[in-house]
Design a protein around this nucleic acid. Structure first.
Lengths: 155, 155
DNA sequence: GGTCGATTGTTATGTAATGTAATTAATACG
DNA sequence: CGTATTAATTACATTACATAACAATCGACC
């Protein structure tokens, strides 16, 4: 009687993978008309929130490696959504800002993603949504803690 | 005062990405000593649950494309964990089974992943864990529903 | 009973999202 | 000043996917 993936569904990691893959497909589809995807949108949001941020800091916030940002920023800069300008006090670094065009796109994209979020949480109460957010943060923390432990024991 | 990713954290998709990435890193680390990763472990679990399953059905359960299963099964077969045997009633198809060695590894890996799950949900009540599972399933369903809608309107 | 469309597994190939190592330019500091 | 460090970049590898095309086989139909 049980579904063919009954046992597999018992593991949290698999459930997360399936849920993430579904929500990512939807958010990417929602962002496609703006020429964005989850990753580039995330970059845009963080720069919008922190004008003048440098690439290293941005990479740190997003927990991705610096080299991976280069192409993403090339893309956003090429689309005239963000600018890289050399920092006056440190000529190695670039200060990142969102252009006017980027801000306009950002506003529309945010609206679309908020709508998407509402669709993804359809059928949940506000409390349940808040509980989900809390749970995701806790899992992330627990996962990162385990990761730290690993890096310390195998340095 | 707000964190540099304050706005970004407001979006569910990003929270899911971060949580999934953290839990995946941990489960992969947990499975590494067994020569497995989340993906190969998932395949092993489904075959263990459904002996005689065929590749097409397996791909359907896991929602991955048939070609991508080929290398994974080569890997598991090469490690003597699963067998492919031609189906008697359809000589195009293979029936998949877990070997004795595979079953032994499976038992140990399952224990390790259950322990990992407990670590990832540390700090949550049983009710909160159940609520998280329900929420993930709902998000997955909502995401897939949206996907269907897209495929119907743009066929 | 032979032909043809569909299906099974496979090969070849492409892409997105990650990671590491090495390079260059600029800074920091003893 | 010179040496180590840091910022961004380049080059490259890997993992997890997807699509297209193909050979063998099946099944249905005339």
């Amino acid at each position: 009687m049980s579904a063919p993936d009954h046992t597999l569904r018992g593991f949290l990691g698999y459930g997360m993978k399936r849920a993430f893959s579904a929500i990512k497909a939807d958010v990417d589809a929602v962002l496609a008309p703006f020429g964005l995807r989850l990753l580039t949108f995330s970059v845009l949001v963080v720069i919008r929130d922190n004008p003048g941020l440098r690439q290293t800091q941005l990479a740190e916030v997003l927990m991705i490696e610096r080299p991976n940002l280069v192409l993403i920023l090339d893309e956003l800069e090429g689309a005239d959504l963000v600018t890289r300008s050399r920092a006056r006090d440190d000529r190695r670094a670039f200060e990142l800002k969102v252009t006017l065009k980027g801000r306009r796109l950002f506003d529309k994209a945010v609206q679309a993603v908020e709508e998407h979020d509402r669709r993804m949480t359809m059928g949940m109460t506000d409390e349940a949504i808040a509980a989900l957010r809390d749970a995701l943060l806790l899992v992330e923390t627990n996962g990162r803690t385990a990761d730290e432990r690993r890096k310390i024991s195998h340095p």
